[in-house]
Simulated scan of single mutants.
Amino acid sequence: MLLVSLMVDKLRKHLNRHLSRMGKKKIDSLVVNYTAKLLDLICHMVELVWQKLKSGPWVISIKQKGSPEEWAMFHVMLRILEATKRLCFPLPPGYSTLLSILGVRCLPQHTFLQYVDHQLLLLTEPFVSHLMTDLDNSDANEQLKFSILKRLPEQLEQKVRQQRDNPLTSACISREYIKTVLGKHDARANLQERDSMQWEDKSNFYPDFLPLNYLTKVLSIREQAQNPFEVQGTVDVRFVEETALKQTLIKLDFEVK
């Protein structure tokens, strides 16, 4: 709706500048009608293709993979998106959400994330809510959810975290906790604590991953410090360790994002 409002405002200013003799009331009516016709045209095209492919309302679900008909629908809607971008046309409300839902149903996970990174698909709030609600907490779905959360704007990510009480919320809390703790941990104190650590006692850590050992040791030492996320629950060091290891594997491309 923001783009629609922007287009209406820009078009109104343009007509007032070059066709001021028409009068403000006629220009306002012309702008609103023109924009509405554009939106109706796009909706009509989508509805025609939808009916042609006989896509039902169940396509809104994210639980199952898309059919060949849904893939064709996704392809058409993507072409409409590209055309409207080139022509600077607005899209009807809900278009981006539906396109993202079709995308997550039809595309492989890594391809879907690439489309998101290239801004071909938008992570709208309704889409993210559908994703978090419809998908279970299997390993593959958790990876997808976590990858989506990492790509959200900070404000939307916080809103999703406040609404959802699940392992992904804890993962985000632990990530922010690590960032806060290590941000306050200056280099001098870092070196002093590292020198004072007894690396021989590794029974509670992974012995073959020293950077992760050090991270969890720092968090253990400083867990008495004020935790900005204590209202949302205490941070489990073991869980932080698992999350850090998982993200390290993703960064090194040993796991699919």
Rank of each mutant, 00 (worst) to 15 (best):
M1F: 13
V4W: 07
S5V: 10
S5M: 13
D9F: 14
D9Y: 13
K10F: 15
R12I: 12
K13G: 05
L15G: 01
L15Y: 03
R17T: 12
K24M: 15
K26G: 10
I27Y: 05
S29P: 04
S29M: 15
V32P: 06
Y34N: 09
Y34P: 01
A36I: 15
L38C: 12
I42V: 09
I42R: 03
C43S: 11
H44A: 15
H44N: 13
E47R: 04
E47T: 12
L48T: 13
W50K: 07
W50G: 07
L53C: 11
L53F: 05
L53N: 11
K54A: 12
K54R: 14
K54I: 09
W58N: 12
I60C: 04
I60A: 04
S61V: 08
K65M: 03
S67L: 02
S67I: 05
A72P: 06
F74A: 00
H75Q: 11
L78N: 08
L81V: 14
E82S: 12
T84R: 01
T84H: 02
R86Q: 10
R86E: 12
R86I: 14
C88F: 13
F89A: 11
L91M: 04
P92W: 13
P92Q: 13
G94S: 04
Y95A: 00
I101S: 08
G103I: 00
V104F: 00
L107G: 03
L107S: 00
P108F: 03
P108Y: 06
H110C: 12
F112I: 00
Q114N: 10
L120H: 06
L122Y: 07
L123W: 02
T124K: 00
E125C: 10
E125V: 13
F127Y: 02
H130M: 14
L131C: 09
L131N: 03
L131D: 03
M132R: 04
D134P: 01
L135D: 00
L135I: 01
L135Y: 00
D136T: 03
D139H: 03
E142S: 01
K145H: 03
K145D: 00
K145C: 02
I148G: 05
L149D: 03
K150S: 07
P153C: 02
E154A: 11
E157I: 08
Q158Y: 07
R161W: 15
Q163C: 08
R164A: 15
R164E: 15
D165M: 11
N166M: 09
N166E: 04
K184P: 02
D186K: 04
D186E: 05
A187T: 07
L191Q: 05
E193M: 09
E193K: 09
D195W: 10
Q198D: 14
W199Y: 14
W199F: 14
E200P: 04
K202D: 13
K202E: 15
S203C: 08
F205L: 12
P207Q: 11
D208W: 10
L210E: 15
L212I: 12
L212V: 11
N213L: 15
L215T: 10
S220V: 05
E223L: 07
Q224K: 15
A225I: 09
P228C: 07
P228T: 08
E230M: 08
V231S: 06
Q232F: 06
G233S: 03
T234K: 12
R238L: 15
T243Q: 02
Q247V: 05
Q247A: 06
L252S: 13
L252H: 13
D253M: 01
